[in-house]
Design a protein around this nucleic acid. Structure first.
Lengths: 342, 342
DNA sequence: ACTTCTTTTTAGATCGATCTATTAAATCGA
DNA sequence: TCGATTTAATAGATCGATCTAAAAAGAAGT
């Protein structure tokens, strides 16, 4: 039953409709200087022959592109999958098709993905850069006239658009909240100090302490990968400290979840024995028990902004590099009791 | 500082190396009948000029494709994002680039996405079909010699490969487990009865009852969207029933989470007042409190299999349509107490 | 009827690569 | 040394569309 259909090209359509290839092309694209009768004839032939437009060939000739490359760290990570949703939905509105790549935070993989995407003639790239990657990488792409938008992670020296969140503010409101609740000894858990986002959050954390007349105890700062395992690792280190802090600000929600799971396993009551604030407001934060008080990074909106900035470039904007910094918001839930009176 | 580099083509490379375009092309691809000295010369010129291979143009001429279309329901859904991970990682190994589309379960959107992907000359398509979509859709693509692999959701009448899970078995082991724990009155919550996966799970659920000499009470079956909200909706309906069942099998984990959140909100103890078994084993299932006992759908593996089947077709396999059915596994956690003795 | 202007259509070159078929150079055997 | 064979390099057509520039057809003005 499987009959092999020959590939139908525009030339076949043109011949079937009794016009030239050029006319068929113009008709297809709804050019105003094709007579309506002719256009209808061409459209009918297309229908009849089962013609499929070859956008690839069209793009080759007209030197443009309807695809966009998207490079993120990982898909199995709620933060990035939310970001992906935001970007994907917005680009879809602009008729752009997304080509996906994940780096697992390896600059080498990132390099390979970028090459592949260039070979596929993407019109632009949205990049959440792997740590340790070079701004030279980005600038090399820009010099090929392919716009790049950085998202979530900035890259010093890259001359392109950037969308991120105000990490300083985020760290600050988290710490302010805990201080207001009466906490005086607050840990800072997880993440890597070489990431710009970590530095920002820490800075805000510190300045909230300063503003309240408190000093930050840097022996309560522990770094780790930004994973659930990282959280488990870091809470174990923290529990060796004496006296224990009454609260902890976690670099992100995933770490907070690891921390709290381990606490419960050890017979502690997360949120009560140690109050916890997370970061990102991933979907899990609302379903964990206790529900996690966290700093919302408006992740989807961040993705949408990135998509819009890129679209503007694709439409020819030559403006200076834009920077969009979103305001974080504290989402108060149930993971922060006031400190025990002892 | 921004100098506009002209696009470097293979012809430029050839001229720079002092050979013909054809030779440059062969050298680039490592053809055995190009002298090593010549190849080195060409490679050096490529390097020097900053040449970027245009895979799109190459694919046009050689009539093949390095891209694959992937169509799923939604990204912000742990099940599908796990599936995506499995597919994406495996395709990446084959050097295939993924073009992404989400249907939100709308056949109309699905149709549009398929068209777009065909226009982009994808080599093949992995599809988790929207409910109510037509097998004709798939067969039309197949008749264009573009292989399709269905994943997770089958489509009656579509003559192509399929990877799924044994839903009957899954429903059965879930019910068996609850029955063994002593439950005699078990609800079936969420999902839509028109989905083939729902029907399978229900069938297994029923047959486990039958095998234990129990009868299924169909007034304890409630349908809903497969979302957290669906779970909330469906537990409210269930709680109006009297006497209450002692256990519930949920169509998937997301529903189970909605159910349990709402239970807790109403002062009930999820897992104790009503024992809960979920389906899919999404990452959240392990972090929810209580940790959810669930039927693992081996989601990533499912994705990997789908990718492999497609790759086989792309390499020219003309075998009859293949069907891969994965065995589900019960993951016992903490959401199933035995029934209260009253 | 003839020029002028507009509208509609088209031939042929082109995008950047690969393919086919052929030629040029090198190697070899007698 | 010369033809036969193998190896290396190339010219020109081609993939399926768009673009440019020019031609053909139709409408309008005098």
């Amino acid at each position: 039953m499987k009959q092999k259909k020959r590939h139908v090209t525009l030339l076949d359509v043109a011949e079937h409709a009794g016009v030239s290839r050029a006319t068929a092309s113009l008709a297809l694209r709804g050019s105003p200087n094709i007579a309506k009768a002719t256009r209808d004839k061409v459209l009918a032939s297309m229908q009849e022959l089962g013609y499929v437009y070859d956008r690839i060939a069209a793009n080759l000739r007209s030197r443009d592109s309807t695809t966009v490359g998207l490079i993120i760290m990982e898909l199995a990570n709620p933060f990035y999958s939310e970001l992906l949703v935001g970007i994907h939905q917005e680009l879809d509105k602009f008729g752009k098709t997304v080509i996906l790549g994940t780096t697992f935070d390896s600059p080498a993989i990132q390099e390979r993905l970028l090459s592949t995407m260039l070979e596929h003639r993407v019109g632009g790239i949205i990049l959440s850069a792997a740590p340790g990657s070079d701004s030279e990488t980005v600038n090399r792409i820009l010099s090929r006239d392919i716009p790049v938008v950085l998202v979530n992670r900035t890259l010093r020296g890259a001359e392109c658009d950037y969308v991120g969140i105000d990490n300083v503010k985020g760290g600050q409101i988290a710490a302010e909240y805990l201080i207001k609740k009466g906490h005086r000894s607050i840990a800072f858990l997880g993440g890597y100090s070489k990431l710009s986002s970590w530095q920002g959050r820490k800075q805000g954390f510190d300045s909230a302490h300063l503003a309240a007349g408190l000093t930050v105890d840097n022996s309560l700062v522990f770094e780790s990968p930004a994973t659930r395992e990282g959280g488990i690792e870091v809470i174990q280190k923290l529990l060796k400290v004496s006296p224990l802090p009454t609260a902890a600000f976690c670099y992100n929600d995933t770490i907070a979840i690891g921390v709290m799971m381990k606490m419960r396993e050890l017979g502690l009551v997360p949120g009560k024995d140690i109050a916890i604030v997370g970061f990102d407001d991933i979907p899990e934060a609302a379903i964990f028990s206790p529900k996690i008080t966290t700093v919302s990074a408006c992740t989807r909106m961040m993705g949408a902004y990135a998509a819009r900035l890129l679209q503007a470039r694709l439409e020819g904007s030559e403006a200076d590099p834009q920077t969009v910094i979103l305001e974080p918001e504290l989402v108060v839930r149930q993971s922060c009791s006031p400190p025990d009176e002892t």
